[in-house]
Amino acid sequence: MEVIVTIERRKSPVESSYIETFRVDLPDSANVIMILMEIRKKPINIKGEKVSPVAFECSCLEEVCGACTMNINGRARQACSTLLRDLGGKINLAPLRKFPVIRDLIVDRRKIFDALKRVKAWIPIDGTYGMGPGPKVPEKVQRIGYKLARCMSCGICMEACPQVNDRSNFIGPAVIAQTYLFNLHPTGAMIEEDRLETLLEDGGIGECGNAQNCVKVCPKGVPLTYALGKLNRDTLIYSIKRLLDT
């Protein structure tokens, strides 16, 4: 099928954006990444001008790494798993809005990883030497933990969240859900209070406006609002306890 692709481009972080349109011909089973790959093979825009290939990020090509996330027809999604047959003949591509653009469709999502550091999103093990099996985990806990652990830090939930914006430093739903994951684990729970403390700080769970957009857009079905709800309760209990302790 023939598609007309309009792309919001930018040469570098300091330059302003511009729009460029291409015409490509691909089977309808192709994904959006294929469009960008076709453009590289023939970097000529719809006016027939030679242009530079469109810069984009991708790796796994099967929606497990999160690299290729961008706005497609106004909705943030993974380009590798968005197929032409679901889009129609006119396609709009733009970079994510909530992150600084590097070039064309590439954005800098470092702030997600920084936030993971802030909430201590890890299990504090003693070391890697042999210590025998880990704590037994009930199948029930594994099922919910696994769902949370599939978060690939793609940023879609932040893109959809009204509370993530220029005026706030909200760490966003994904990172908060990871906090819950680590509090769920028997060893992870040993530093639960550190994490709750962080969530009570500026940019933490208090910023959540309960719009619930995040859970609707998450490509991996991570139970974001479930985790947010649980942590709302946990941080509340913790802050009362903290109050009583002092």
Binding site: E57, S59, C60, E62, V64, C65, G66, R110, F113, M152
Partner: peptide, 10 residues
């Protein structure tokens, strides 16, 4: 790439 997006995720 950010290490979290390495091929091993596949």
């Amino acid at each position: 790439l950010p290490v979290k997006r390495s091929h091993s995720v596949c």
